[in-house]
Design a protein around this nucleic acid. Structure first.
Lengths: 223, 223
DNA sequence: ATGAAGAACTAGACCGTACAGTACTCATCA
DNA sequence: TGATGAGTACTGTACGGTCTAGTTCTTCAT
């Protein structure tokens, strides 16, 4: 009886085929992220998904399509996460300095997560092999999230917390560059090996906010 | 007679073995940069170097060592080139704004060269497979060049063209982030495909200088 | 200068392994 | 009962690295 209920419950959520498909995607994500495209083997994907190779090839035409599906599937998650960070830290903030510090800190936290770094490495590594896929990921994930940041900054400006922004997207890239350039490069090049020192991220966040405010803050809020 | 003279000339420059070795390194650089570590084949390296596989394995123990040799060999070139850019644009400059603009422009030019981008992709892609090599490249190439920029900025500050810098290296990273974050990310993720629009780099350079000066410029030089 | 001696090089066969993708048989689910 | 999946063997290919046999360069004593 219990067995039957469980079966029904699962079936209500999704059938066997989509369930397998999701398992394959999850496994393939793991394998591609940790070994790269060429280093990933379809045997390992199938094994890790608890599925036969035949099933993998029923769901995905070949290795390339599987790769594309995975990369493009991550754009949305990334975008949603960052959008949320903008809302949490900027909307409703009373003080620009505090808001920007909080945002910087939040960006550092989310973008230096291992899975994010691995995905970035994967996309960069395969940019030449799959220019369409990687270009699409960049446009609909990376660039879109910076545009969204530009809009969030504009709202801050509309609320009288920043100067008027002639080019919000540029300002967004500048802020991101101030915050992320150092830690992101280290994380990308030096692998998971070299961790930043405890206080470093805080200092980075604070100083980035300071420089940004010097250029875009209202005079009275200058330190 | 002519033939003989050519032979002598070449022998004067370098013997057969180092000549072959250099040919192998050049070919391997090309192959690794364009196909990645796993995508590169030793057969192709040998063929492109005009050398037999045996010779490759006489000079380099195996594929991994060849890779390491190539990656580490590029640190110095990169560093020298950037050091030169700092000297050319900052030393002897009379106006901070103009100097920073020129530097930004120069950085954009040199760091978006195809070979530089391909090398960065390669190092990032293999950061997990070869953490020591890639970490060493990062420390002795990337970080060192930023430290050098910090020192160059300090000299600018000593000459009374910038505020006193509490943390020159941080300031260097901030300047680099302001300048490079957008174009470098695009170049890395979107491949050689998406070229920046003509005026874009100039605007990026100018605006980066502007923001940097707002934070680190002397009051009288504020716009 | 000459001419062995020996090192370095070539060309390509070869070995073992790994992998993408397919085929086939038997079990399982709807 | 008919489709889907498991398990697994198989095919073709590619690659890292070694081996061999024959060729060319370098060196150094004469």
């Amino acid at each position: 009886m219990i067995f039957r209920m469980e079966r029904v419950e699962q079936a209500e959520i999704e059938g066997r085929t989509p369930r397998k498909r999701r398992a394959i995607l999850a496994a393939a994500t793991e394998v591609f992220l940790s070994h790269g495209y060429l280093g990933a083997s379809m045997d390992e994907v199938a094994a890790k998904a608890g599925v036969s190779k035949q099933t993998v090839y029923k769901q995905f035409e070949n290795k390339e399509r599987l790769f594309a599906e995975i990369v493009l599937g991550t754009s949305d998650q990334l975008l949603d996460g960052l959008q949320q960070a903008y809302v949490d830290t900027l909307e409703g903030a009373a003080d620009a300095r505090e808001a920007l510090r909080a945002l910087a800190h939040r960006l550092l936290q989310s973008l230096t997560a291992d899975s994010v770094l691995q995905l970035r490495r994967l996309v960069i590594a395969e940019a030449d092999r799959f220019p369409e896929v990687c270009g699409a990921w960049f446009n609909s994930g990376f660039e879109k999230s910076l545009d969204a940041l530009g809009q969030a900054l504009t709202r801050l400006s509309d609320r009288g917390l920043l100067k008027r922004l002639d080019d919000p997207t540029l300002a967004a890239y500048q802020f991101a560059g101030l915050v992320m350039y150092k830690p992101m490069n280290r994380a990308m090049f030096a692998g998971t090996r070299q961790r930043p020192k405890p206080g470093e991220l805080e200092k980075l966040a604070d100083q980035a906010a300071e420089v940004f405010l010097a250029a875009y803050g209202l005079e009275r809020s200058a330190r």
